[in-house]
Write a protein that binds this DNA or RNA. Structure first.
Lengths: 210, 210
DNA sequence: GTCTGTGAAGCAATTCACAGCT
DNA sequence: AGCTGTGAATTGCTTCACAGAC
C-alpha cells in the first residue's frame, strides 16, 4: 500500500469522497464496498482495491466507517488544506458557476474573478473581488491563487490558460469548447466542455446500437 | 480496423473533433499527427493508432486533410444526426448553460427546459420552451428527447435522473455535486461536477509534490 | 526524406479468488 | 456468516518500431 496511486483510482476517490460527504449529511455511519458499488456503479472489488492503495481502514467483517474513510481519503490525496481559486470570464456561465454550491468543507475558495469587459467588472454583484483581465498575473501572484476556472469564449481560452500558468496556477478547469494544452508539466488541466460531453454520450449511444 | 473502438479512443476523438472544427474555422486545411500532438498533448503515435480504428484517411507522407478527417470521425462515431436535449434546473447555472455557445454544426439542440419553481418557469427569458418538472415524462416522450442535462441541487439529482431515464433519455450530463448512477445499461452518464474537478486537480497537485 | 498505418511488445489497470479477521 | 485486503491472473490500452506510400 501507499506506493503510487494510479490516476483512475485518484479520480474514483474524488467521486467516492463526494458520495461520503453526502452520506454523512444524511446521517449514515457505515458503508460496505457492496453498498458503494450500489451507489456509484463501480464494482466492489475495484473499490476495495482502490482503498488498499491508501492503507487499511475498513473493519473486517463490517465495512467502513463513513467519517473515517472520508478523512483517510482527504489526508492521502492531500486535500486537507484550503486552496484559492479564481475564475476568468464572468458572462452568464461564469457568474452562474460562482454561485453554484460547490465549496463545501473549506476545500476551495474562489477569491477573485476576471473579465475583459469593463462593464461586467463594474456591475457584477457578487461577494468576490473582480478585476479586469490584464491584471491576472498581478492578482494571482499577490493572492497566492493555485487554481483557475476558465469560462471565456473558445478563441481566447488558450491565451488565458497560458497567462494563468505563467502566473503560477497549478490546475485549470476549462469550460470553453476548445482543447487547452498545458505548457508546463507542473500544471494539470481538466476540460469540462458541455458540447464535448454531449458528443461523448452521443458516440456511446451510437456504438451501442451497432 | 473498425472492430471495437476502445472508450479512451472515443473520448480522444471527441476532443480532436472539437479541435478540427476550430482549425477549420481558422482556415487550416491540413494537419499531421505531430501537429495534433502539439495542440492536444496526446502523443502522435496514440493519435495515429486511434485513427487506425476508423480506417485509413491520412495521406501517407503529408498528414490529414482537416475536413476529411473531421467528417470521418463524425460518421464513425454516429454523430451525423442532430439529437434533441433538455435541461432540468433553470437556476443561475442552468440558465447560463443554455446560453453558452456549444451547439455548433447542428449536432445538438436544447429543445426544452424544466424547473420545479413555477416563478422561474414563467419569468425566464429564453428561446426554448420551459415546463414545470412534473411534466418531464410527457414532454421527453412527446418531443423525442435523447439527452438530458441536470443542473439541480444535489439532493434532487438522482431522482431527476431516474425520471429522465424512465422517460427514455439515453445520455445524461450531471452538473450536480452528487454521484449519479445509471439504472439502465442503455443510459450513459457523464458527471461534470466543478467541485469534483477542482478536487481531482488538487489531488494531482498533491501527488506530484510527494 | 516525411509521415501514415499497424502488428508486436510492454505496461498498467481491472477482475478474480481466496486467505484472514470479527 | 459477512466483509475486507491482496497477490495472481487477466484484460485492455499504450508505446514501440518499422514497413509501405508518396
Amino acid at each position: 500500500m501507499n506506493k503510487k496511486i494510479p490516476q483512475p483510482t485518484v479520480i474514483r476517490f474524488c467521486s467516492i469522497y463526494q458520495l461520503l460527504c453526502n452520506l454523512e449529511k444524511e446521517g449514515v455511519k457505515k458503508v460496505s464496498s457492496a453498498e458503494l458499488e450500489e451507489k456509484t456503479g463501480v464494482p466492489s472489488h475495484t473499490i476495495r482495491k482502490d482503498i488498499s492503495f491508501i492503507g487499511e481502514v475498513g473493519n473486517t467483517g463490517s465495512g467502513y466507517e463513513v467519517a473515517k474513510l472520508k478523512q483517510h481519503i482527504l489526508n492521502n490525496l492531500g486535500l486537507n488544506r484550503e486552496r484559492k481559486a479564481c475564475i476568468v470570464g464572468l458572462g452568464r456561465l461564469g457568474s452562474g458557476i460562482i454561485q453554484w454550491p460547490l465549496l463545501a468543507e473549506g476545500e476551495f475558495r474562489i477569491v477573485a474573478g476576471f473579465d475583459s469587459n469593463i462593464n461586467t467588472v463594474e456591475t457584477i454583484k457578487t461577494s468576490i473581488s473582480v478585476f479586469p483581465s490584464h491584471e491576472i498575473a498581478d492578482v494571482v501572484k499577490r493572492m497566492g491563487i493555485e487554481l483557475g476556472i476558465i469560462a471565456v469564449p473558445p478563441a481566447r481560452a488558450q491565451e488565458v490558460a497560458d497567462r494563468l500558468m505563467e502566473a503560477g496556477v497549478k490546475g485549470i478547469v476549462n469550460f470553453a469548447p476548445a482543447i487547452i494544452k498545458s505548457r508546463r508539466d507542473d500544471c494539470f488541466i481538466r476540460n469540462m466542455d458541455i458540447g464535448g460531453e454531449l458528443r461523448i454520450l452521443s458516440a456511446m449511444m451510437g456504438m451501442r446500437s451497432q
